[in-house]
Simulated scan of single mutants.
Amino acid sequence: MLMIMLWGLPAQAPTPTATGRLTGQDISLTTTAPTLANPAGSLPSRLTSEWWEKSLRIVVNSAIFRSSGQNLTTTGAYTEMASRLAEPVLLGLAVLAVRGRVKR
């Protein structure tokens, strides 16, 4: 969660823009999302309750519901993928640890 908080969230939430054209009964819309910018500034400036809440929401959605639905920076996307690989392994080790304690 700390990696998502410090390097994974973009500097600003991307706001997609839609442009369209109305021709008679036909409507055509084109939606574009801006490129994600890495966060700027010092690391302590990102340790705020707002960034913590965003990163917590992303990590919980990724771990439990398997889809964060957030636009993340490259570091954030790789962190999310790594956590998806590590979580089942850690869960299995926790089950084995509990099983070992109960068997004694």
Rank of each mutant, 00 (worst) to 15 (best):
L85M: 01
R46D: 07
N61H: 10
R99S: 05
L43Y: 09
T15N: 13
S55E: 06
V98E: 07
G76Q: 04
L90G: 01
Q25Y: 08
R46Y: 04
G76R: 12
I58Q: 07
T35I: 03
L96V: 02
T79D: 11
A97M: 01
R99T: 08
P10K: 06
M3F: 06
Y78K: 14
Q12W: 01
G41S: 04
V98H: 08
G100W: 15
A77K: 15
T32C: 02
G92M: 00
V59T: 10
I27K: 03
T23L: 12
L72T: 08
V60L: 15
R84F: 00
S83N: 12
Q25S: 11
T32Y: 01
R104Q: 12
G8E: 13
A86D: 00
M81S: 09
A86I: 00
R46I: 05
T19E: 14
M1Q: 11
I27N: 01
P10M: 04
R21D: 06
R104E: 09
I58T: 12
L29W: 14
R66H: 15
A97E: 02
R99G: 02
G69N: 07
D26S: 07
V60T: 14
T17S: 14
G100L: 15
L36G: 01
G92I: 00
E87T: 01
I64H: 13
P16C: 08
I64M: 14
R21E: 08
A77T: 15
F65P: 00
A82C: 13
E53S: 09
T73A: 08
R21A: 05
P34G: 09
R104I: 06
L96Y: 02
G69P: 06
N38W: 08
P10E: 04
N71Y: 11
P44K: 12
M3Q: 12
K103D: 13
L56M: 12
P16E: 10
L22C: 06
S55A: 14
G24Q: 07
T17C: 06
G69I: 03
T32N: 09
T19H: 09
